[in-house]
Every structure is written in structure tokens, then in C-alpha cells.
Amino acid sequence: MNYTAEAPDVWDPTFADADGCLLTKDQCVIHGQHYFVKGLIEIPITGRDEVFSWGVWVSLSRESFSRVSELWDRPGREAEKPYFGWLTTDLPVYATTTLNLKTHVHTRAVGERPFVELEPTDHPLAVEQRAGVSLERVREIASAVLHAGDTVPHAADGEQ
């Protein structure tokens, strides 16, 4: 039960061959000046042991991105303190943009996507992350994503 964005909203396909640009399934660099990691915003589903996840991109400072990259394959990396970042994925199922929401990126064990914790604001996404959602709400999100075509994040391909 997750959906994922393939790239940060600021990525343009023409960047693929440009110097200083890189897009992998986990990290992105644009013109050697903007740095992003992919993580999961997890939303508890009320009355269930499952979570709904958004695969999103978060911008990090150069220093934080360097540290994340340095530890990427290192066991024990989950002991790192969270990194501050800005959400750079707009999830259009919300009336108010999700771009530039403040986040903390929590590194997890090698092979697991980072956990993205939203600043506790009154934005509907942040409220859902804190309070959880019903299974019906998950169905509403799934329906909205599936019927919106390429204007929203694509269904995940099972990646974590």
C-alpha cells in the first residue's frame, strides 16, 4: 500500500544527460547544487497493523547529503540523527500543496528507505501522518492516484 514519485518535482528529463545531474532510485543531484533523497512518509491505518506510504523526495543540504551518501551502505547508519529537509514532491490528492513542507529524514538500516517525518503542522498530510487514516481514506487516495494518470505519483513497483 504505497505510491511513489519517480523524481523530485524540480527534476526535468533534460537533466539526465547534463553535467552535475544524477537521478537514481534513491538519490538525485541537480547541477551539482541541489541534493535529494527518496524516503517514505508513512501513515498509520486505523485499526490495522499496516501503514500507507508515500514514496517522496526531500531536499537536503550539501553537508547532509554528503553524510547520507557516505553512510549509504554502512551498517549502523540508522543510529544517525535525523537530517532536516524540505519535501519536494507535490501530492495532488491534497488541496494545499505539499511542496516545501518541513521534514526530518530518519535513516534506517541498510536496504530500507529513510523515514520522512513531517513537521507537526495543520497541513492535512501532517495531520494524517500523526493521527492515521481509515482504510476508506486509503481507498480514496488510491482511486485518486489511479484515475489521475501521469499528473500524480505512479503506483510503486514493490520497492521499499
Score class of each variant (00 low, 15 high):
residue 31 H to T: 01
residue 57 W to S: 01
residue 119 E to F: 10
residue 147 H to T: 15
residue 121 T to Y: 11
residue 27 Q to N: 04
residue 139 R to H: 11
residue 6 E to V: 06
residue 18 A to D: 12
residue 138 V to H: 05
residue 5 A to F: 04
residue 132 G to R: 10
residue 44 P to A: 05
residue 110 V to A: 08
residue 66 S to G: 14
residue 103 T to Y: 04
residue 111 G to S: 10
residue 37 V to C: 14
residue 105 V to A: 03
residue 59 S to N: 04
residue 78 E to S: 14
residue 78 E to T: 02
residue 131 A to Y: 08
residue 1 M to Q: 08
residue 82 P to W: 02
residue 18 A to K: 15
residue 109 A to G: 11
residue 12 D to M: 09
residue 4 T to Y: 00
residue 97 T to E: 08
residue 38 K to D: 01
residue 91 L to D: 01
residue 8 P to A: 04
residue 75 P to S: 11
residue 64 S to F: 08
residue 101 L to P: 02
residue 144 A to L: 13
residue 39 G to K: 11
residue 33 Q to Y: 01
residue 92 P to W: 02
residue 79 A to T: 14
residue 119 E to Y: 09
residue 81 K to R: 13
residue 55 G to A: 05
residue 106 H to K: 11
residue 151 T to S: 15
residue 113 R to I: 00
residue 81 K to V: 01
residue 71 L to T: 10
residue 134 S to M: 06
residue 61 S to I: 02
residue 44 P to T: 01
residue 37 V to G: 05
residue 18 A to R: 13
residue 66 S to N: 15
residue 61 S to R: 08
residue 82 P to K: 09
residue 5 A to S: 13
residue 96 T to S: 12
residue 37 V to M: 13
residue 128 E to I: 01
residue 109 A to F: 03
residue 26 D to W: 13
residue 31 H to P: 00
residue 131 A to L: 13
residue 108 R to A: 12
residue 54 W to P: 03
residue 80 E to A: 12
residue 146 L to D: 15
residue 138 V to R: 09
residue 94 Y to V: 06
residue 15 F to I: 07
residue 159 E to F: 08
residue 42 E to N: 12
residue 73 D to H: 13
residue 80 E to H: 11
residue 159 E to K: 12
residue 7 A to W: 00
residue 51 V to F: 09
residue 86 W to T: 01
residue 125 L to W: 01
residue 98 T to G: 10
residue 115 F to E: 14
residue 69 S to G: 13
residue 46 T to F: 01
residue 68 V to Q: 14
residue 128 E to F: 02
residue 7 A to M: 07
residue 55 G to L: 07
residue 29 V to P: 05
residue 86 W to S: 03
residue 145 V to C: 11
residue 58 V to L: 05
residue 133 V to I: 15
residue 153 P to S: 05
residue 130 R to E: 10
residue 67 R to Y: 10
residue 60 L to W: 02
residue 153 P to G: 11
residue 12 D to V: 14
residue 160 Q to P: 03
residue 20 G to E: 03
residue 87 L to P: 03
residue 112 E to N: 15
residue 100 N to A: 08
residue 155 A to M: 13
residue 154 H to T: 13
residue 100 N to Q: 12
residue 123 H to N: 06
